[in-house]
Amino acid sequence: MSKLFLSVFAAVAPTTLSGSDYLSSFSEGYGAANPLFCLFADRQLSFQQGDLAAGLSEERDHIPAFRGDFTDDAVRFLAEHGHGKRKIDLLCYCHETVGGNAGMLPAWKIQKRLGLVNCLPFSVGQQGSLASVSGVELVQSFFRAEPVQHALLLTIDHVVSPFSRKRFCGFAKGDAAAWIHFTRDEGTYQLLYAGQRGCCLPVSMHQWTADDYERAERMLIDKALLLLCEIRKQQRIDWTIAQCVSRSFLAGLERAWRNCDQKLFQRTRWANINFLGSDPFVTLQEMDSQITVQAGETIALVFVSPDHGVGVLLLQKNN
């Protein structure tokens, strides 16, 4: 099987939202004309539902949040890294959040603004933070099946009202972007594995209690451990990064993984923010700035979605 190489970049939203700004955004009137409001009305949910405030301090907490059109930030990040000048065959846009403009197709907008011609854009969504792993699997499949030479995978999330940034004991959701450039011959890492293990409670997430959320977390810890152990039978894992879903999730996974003589690298900057599909990439970037990972060493990135399951990417540092 031919090799696939990648280089990863991540960026947290350059602006922040204070806890009080976040809470006050929900007091703005959302009428029936707002398409996002229609989603709530369709399920007979009030947008005040959900635990908006728990764990947030009005004065203290600041959450990275894009302002305005996040695709402008994405195009700027990509152009600064030279992606507008390359021939890109595939543009995979991964997301968990809807964003503010329901009618706009971000993958197309980014492709158009970067001037990418003869490039197939598509999105991966509707699977929580696992969209990133799912996207990598599909990109890998394209490289194996078609004459693709260069692909760009973007994962961008921008939480907008009336969606909540908090869910029970989970960390607050912050906005960030990550992008991966895939090629057949060079990159910072080689992709050794991309895969998912689905799991979900039989109860709709709109009806969850705090107990349900914790039950989902415990299920995710078990699934993540199983998947990591399965991977480890075929390939050594030197470093492990897990998505910052919640304190209890990280503690639980860290404890279980320590029992397998492995440890988690935990992020220190924005340690209590969940950057969704970009989160493990943000941590990877921090790890890269603190630790010299040797060529040949492997890093497992664990992605988690409480209502979808777990996914893992295994990367090997290239020479």
Binding site: Y93, A102, F122, V124, Q126, G128, E137, P202, H206, H308
Partner: peptide
């Protein structure tokens, strides 16, 4: 693209037929 992207839309089908662990890909923007 307008939906609850963190919600598992196939929950009931997955549980009824024991398909929870199957790899899943949700694609769009065409």
């Amino acid at each position: 693209e307008l939906s609850w992207h963190d919600e598992n839309m196939l929950r009931e089908v997955l549980h009824t037929y024991g398909l929870q662990e199957r790899p899943f890909h949700a694609i769009g923007q065409h």
